[in-house]
């Protein structure tokens, strides 16, 4: 797909809402998947209740709605591997990285070694990452 003259921008998707209660998490993920085709510098931030999107063990069978959590695991295949989770948001909810799904990608620059896509970052680090962005999507 066209990248319009080779412009590569830093695009960040901010996820601050829990899944299922509202559609924002799912429709945000749909934008991320479409956006992956544009060859931009993509990163995802999970802040506040957004961290619940990455929780292990989601099962929506009894709700009659689609469990879209496996899609996060496919992000690595779309070359989306900068996934930042704010440590303070996890801590505030009594969570740590073990409570989150493992998201990985294969690093083509390192003999396709499997690497972790999730980076747990401090508020200060998240703040610095935010400041570097050209475009910030929030839903």
């Amino acid at each position: 797909m066209s990248d319009k003259g080779g412009t590569v921008k830093k695009l960040m998707y901010i996820n601050r809402k829990a899944p299922y209660g509202t559609i924002y998490a799912l429709e945000s993920l749909e934008v991320v998947l479409i956006g992956a085709a544009f060859d931009q510098n993509i990163s995802l931030a999970f802040i506040d209740d957004g961290v619940y999107q990455l929780a292990k063990g989601q099962n929506t069978e009894a709700l009659g709605v689609k469990n879209f959590s496996p899609t996060y695991k496919a992000l690595g295949d779309y070359d989306i591997n900068k996934i930042y989770v704010e440590k303070e948001s996890l801590q505030a909810r009594g969570l740590n990285q073990d409570d989150l799904m493992a998201l990985t990608y294969e690093d083509e620059d390192d003999d396709w070694a499997e690497k972790n896509s999730i980076h747990i970052v401090s508020t200060k680090e998240m703040s610095d990452i935010l400041e570097q962005q050209d475009v910030v999507f929030s839903f």
Binding site: M1, S2, L11, V31, I34, G35, F38, Q40, V136, F137
Partner: peptide, 20 residues
């Protein structure tokens, strides 16, 4: 149209502003 139009707009624009 498709979601690609949103991504394209963000690339072609100097600023993207979100209202929600």
């Amino acid at each position: 149209s498709g979601l690609g139009q949103l991504i394209e707009a963000s690339i072609l624009s100097d600023r993207l502003v979100v209202f929600g």
